[in-house]
Design a protein around this nucleic acid. Structure first.
Lengths: 95, 95
DNA sequence: CACATAGATTGACATGCGTCGATATGTTTG
DNA sequence: CAAACATATCGACGCATGTCAATCTATGTG
């Protein structure tokens, strides 16, 4: 059965979120970080990007369901949504 | 270990190729087709796109190493590169 | 309350990308 | 060779996207 237009559109959104090198690096850093999450301040420096740009990329990853955002006090902690990467990988197998 | 800039760039290229609904549908149609490959004429109609646009998308998929192109006579037959989708899916697990 | 700090949002700009029409290339047929 | 056909390439257009500087929001601290 071939993919219909709506399903294709939705899956493309997931891959669009992964289609940027800096977002892949963000995911990598968050994945390597502690379970409590990684704060934005620890993400800005290694990527050599401005803070607004990092916030922008993080928002895209949260909207795509890949990252979870939790605010504690002044800081925002980002963590991987469990299983989200595996689920996205599964989208390829079921093409 | 966090992803370095070059690796991130290269992986992003793979996901960029998947980040378009019409390209996902092309992959789906080719996957569902016969082993001998699917010709462009069979790809243009179901996507409701012009022939140059389909050729353009196919080129991107070939450049990404996902599709193989074989010309037989006047027709060009496209087929999935064995294991390519699985390998791309694997890029996510190793972030 | 005044101020500092972390992060998000906005607006602007340049670049990239999907699409199309027109054209070029190459192959088959008469 | 000429005509028809399948596919690729080119040029242009509009829209999406990544980035930054400036600003806003909210939380803490004197």
């Amino acid at each position: 059965m071939i993919l219909n237009a709506e399903d294709a559109q939705q899956r493309a959104l997931a891959f669009k979120a992964l289609a940027d090198p800096n977002r892949l690096r963000l995911l990598s850093i968050v994945k390597a970080g502690s379970d409590g999450g990684t704060c934005v301040c620890d993400l800005t420096e290694p990527l050599d990007l401005g803070q607004p740009t990092v916030s922008h990329h993080l928002k895209i990853l949260v909207d795509a369901g890949l990252l979870h955002r939790e605010k504690r006090g002044t800081w925002a902690y980002y963590s991987l949504v469990p299983g989200a990467l595996e689920q996205t990988a599964g989208l390829l197998a079921s093409l």
